[in-house]
């Protein structure tokens, strides 16, 4: 489904602030893979997701999505194939627009936007049913501006928007990091449910090792802009946080375990 080949990305090249974010990343995701991505700060996790989504362009290498080379495709054209949920709950929705309007915008991802009315009556009924399944009471607040929702409600709505049109690839960029633990657990559970329901190919960046182990069928660890660990199948199922921590420290050559990654 996704083939990342030799992707490199350097920030501020040729200056004292030069930072190699991706030092030749190779990664292939099979159809239906749910990959969790971990790594310390500056390991290149978010940059990888940004390069795949087109928010940033790769310096070299190629990104092929379902057989199509999208390396040079601008962000809004790539959006046709991608569902995205961001770390910042403010980023996924338009605050001044209604819940139903946000959903209607998402329902038209990758289609031509013409002079037809922006939302239809049938759509409203569909959205109401989908919102009901979130069990957040949003089905009765369809004409509320999303700016009035809590962070957890917004992330749940963004998740729904990202998957309303089935994406070839779902990108979750630390989408629960800004939420309190209880809400984070709820949004994660919802993510699992939606991914399983539609058998979505998914990449989820997380700082939380426990979440990385508990979710998905495959786990990769990044360090210094490279994929340094790739665990799947049975091996991943029996992985523990302490084992993972040990591997992390061995690979990064120090025992400065990231505080955030220990949060469990």
């Amino acid at each position: 489904m996704l083939e990342v080949k030799g992707v490199r990305k350097t920030f501020f090249p040729g200056t004292v602030n030069e930072k190699v974010a991706l030092a030749g990343v190779d990664l292939t995701l099979k159809d239906g893979d749910f990959v969790t991505v971990i790594g310390g700060n500056g390991a290149g996790k978010s940059t990888l997701l940004n390069v795949v989504s087109g928010t940033m362009s790769a310096d070299s290498g190629s990104i092929v999505l379902d057989g199509q080379d999208v390396t040079r495709l601008p962000e809004h054209r790539r959006a046709k194939y991608l569902g995205r949920v961001f770390q910042d709950p403010m980023m996924g929705t338009a605050p001044g627009m209604l819940i139903e309007e946000n959903l209607a915008l998402a329902a038209r991802r990758g289609t031509h936007r013409g002079l037809k009315w922006g939302i239809t009556r049938e759509e409203r009924a569909e959205y109401r049913e989908m919102l009901r399944q979130l069990e957040l009471g949003l089905e009765d607040r369809m004409t509320t501006r999303t700016g009035l929702l809590s962070g957890g409600q917004r992330q749940a709505l963004t998740l729904l928007m990202a998957t309303l049109r089935r994406p070839k690839l779902l990108l979750l960029d630390e989408h629960t990091a800004a939420l309190d633990p209880r809400t984070a657990a709820k949004v994660l559970e919802l993510s699992d449910k939606i991914v399983a329901e539609h058998k979505l190919t998914t990449m989820m960046v997380t700082h939380n090792m426990k979440d990385a182990i508990a979710h998905g069928n495959r786990l990769i660890m990044m360090s210094n802009g490279r994929v340094v660990l790739d665990i799947s199948g049975e091996e991943k199922k029996h992985l523990t946080v302490s084992q993972l921590l040990e591997m992390f420290n061995k690979i990064s050559g120090s025992d400065e375990a990231n505080d955030k990654m220990l949060l469990a």
Binding site: S53, T55, P74, E75, H76, R77, A79, K80, L82, R84, F86, M90, M91, G92, T93, A94, P95, G96, M97, E101, N102, A104, L105, A106, R108, R109, G110, T111, R113, G114, L115, K116, W117, G118, I119, M161, A162
Partner: peptide
Amino acid sequence: GTEKGCAIRATGANVHMARAQGIN
């Protein structure tokens, strides 16, 4: 209220969201 008009409003409200939803 049309699809085009909604896309303009989304662009003004949140560019990140607009681009993620395929809006140029």
